[in-house]
Design a binder for these strands. Structure first.
Lengths: 344, 344
DNA sequence: GTGAAAGCGCTAACAC
DNA sequence: GTGTTAGCGCTTTCAC
């Protein structure tokens, strides 16, 4: 049993055994610059030389030190992205779109999680700038003054996402959360609902959706929605809890707009448990068009947004900029669609 | 409207405006090494000097170049982790456990996604080694020979997770997927089920769970479970589809073990749609103890594992090793618990 | 097509 | 406490 054993590889074996460009060059009988060229610009090396060097690279298990390369060339081929939370499905598709597009060009993604905190976001931005990432993707348009200033000073391309703004830091791809909330308000009105509640967090995008919803209702002189604030955390449970609160404290409510589909699904589960019929007794709708909204019964009305495309476009903008190509649209509005389903 | 505008910051303004350690040192009237010490070992600098330097750092917006630092010191304070997929909840908690523990020590997490492919995993490992990460966390114990060899040559600490193995590459934290499958088999038997199906992917951990389940059934001379292989992808839908297949093609089935709770939830939704009672007509159980298993009605029997703790422990092992502290247990079995709920 | 020299911004080791 | 010197492993520029 190999327990209680001191780890045998001292991490600081300073005379590191790592194979270097020099080693390969020496073995292959060329200068180190040739090895460099074989890796970066193979066309500029004679085929014979290239073959020989390549075989030594493989044989010796040489892995170029990207730290040194980045330091010398001032390009790391790393793009950083900051999302409020990884591991909840909302932003997963954006990350996927981002990383797929970046990988296709040999870039890697450094991922950070801000926990919906502007301060944490700022700290991450500083750390990423310290690592000399080639570009940064941010969620939302709200950032600390310090973050904006750092980003400006670093002079690297930035893409803000998941919202719209007149004056982005640099580039922007998203949709109007306000308009999306407004559109859902119109949908609910048109379906005849008059006592509407909104369940969502304090994050800027949720706030914008609520503002849009409120405006739509006000337009028709329907009273301002009841606002149930949810803590961050496990969404199904939060959705359930807010549903309990609505049923208990706001029994006249006939429709609830949730800031995401998982919250709505949790609420639906609570309704089913309490034998409230959806949508007959109370209507529910969500946001983002996640899988659960489609698959649960009754299927949940939602606002479809193209999360994957946001990531994809952000990556394209960055790559264009990094290759000195013009970016056709510095502000890119991807829009949204209300998807009526059985739950309303 | 600022559309159709060429991006105005050429990314390659080579005479970079970035503030350097030298600049700060010059402004503060000290040598650059003093600036370095203010950042890395503030105690070794006279308070007066420190205050002065710090104020200049803040004033000039100096951000240390971690690339250069890493190159010189041979420590990047980056830990890489590779999971089969980000954005599905299964590994999310492990990532959270990892990044929380790492952040507390000033380390950052570089995240990679292998898409359940050993080849992609190997490519990521090579890229990460090229970036000179200080340590690597891997999912599972199955890796290409090339990956093992690279890892060995790089001589960095490695933690494998989410499974058990006699001879890990280096360190290991997980639980026995085989035993977990076996335990669920025992539970199903004890509940009186005799016609059991298994739904899961081709990944090594799913295969191990199936093997354990099969062994438990064989022990009591119950026939080998029907195995429905699921493609990767959107789990609710896959769960639903496999349920359809089971109901249509294997109608005698009285219990189904799903390789994760989301699959089981999808199957449950299909049962409800078809008015099959769970567990009376057919029993379902899942794996991982995700939120959805707890919240859906009926609640789904599952195998609880401590995903967060896996990440947390992996980080601790790595940090201990990097600080030349002994690691108490090089192989750490966190175990699991079968949680019986209404669905069986 | 290939090589030599210089330097990216930092830290380690040793001096003062 | 603080400074000096010498690289870390690579890319860039320019020469051959």
């Amino acid at each position: 049993m190999p327990n209680h054993v001191i780890h045998k590889q001292p991490p600081k074996d300073n005379k590191s055994t790592a194979v270097t460009k020099e080693d390969v060059a020496r073995a292959a009988g060329v200068s180190h610059i040739t090895v460099s060229r074989v890796i970066n610009t193979p066309d500029k090396v004679a085929p014979t030389t290239r073959k020989k060097v390549e075989s030594f690279i493989a044989k010796m298990g040489y892995i170029p030190n990207l730290l040194a390369g980045g330091l010398a060339s001032k390009r790391t081929r790393i793009i950083a992205a900051i999302v409020p939370t990884i591991g909840h499905s909302i932003f997963a598709e954006t990350i996927r779109g981002l990383s797929e597009q970046l990988a296709s060009q040999g870039y890697q993604l450094l991922l950070g999680q801000s926990n919906y905190s502007e301060t944490e976001e700022t700290a991450l931005i500083e750390a990423f700038i310290g690592r000399r990432v080639d570009g940064i993707v941010l969620t939302g348009t709200q950032h600390t003054a310090r973050a904006r200033q750092r980003l400006k000073a670093a002079a690297i391309p930035v893409v803000e996402t998941w919202d719209l703004s007149d004056k982005p830091i640099d580039m922007l791809v998203g949709f109007s959360n306000y308009d999306a909330g407004f559109a859902m308000g119109e949908h609910l009105k048109q379906q005849g609902y008059r006592h509407i509640a909104f369940v969502g967090g304090e994050d800027p995008r949720g706030v914008a959706r609520l503002a849009g919803l409120t405006a739509a209702l006000k337009k028709s002189r329907i009273k301002t929605p009841v606002h149930i604030a949810v803590q961050l955390g496990t969404f199904l449970q939060r959705g359930r809890q807010s549903m309990i609160e609505i049923l208990d404290n706001h029994p006249q409510t006939d429709a609830v707009f949730f800031s995401n589909d998982v919250l709505a699904a949790g609420a639906l589960m609570e309704c089913q448990k309490r034998k409230r019929r959806v949508p007959e007794d109370i209507a529910l709708c969500g946001f983002a068009d996640l899988e659960i909204a489609r698959e649960i019964t009754p299927a949940i009305t939602t606002v479809k947004i193209d999360s994957f495309h946001i990531g994809h476009t952000a990556a394209q903008m960055l790559l264009a900029t990094l290759n000195n190509r013009p970016v056709p649209e510095v502000i890119c509005d991807l829009g949204f669609t209300v998807i009526p389903r059985q739950s309303t």
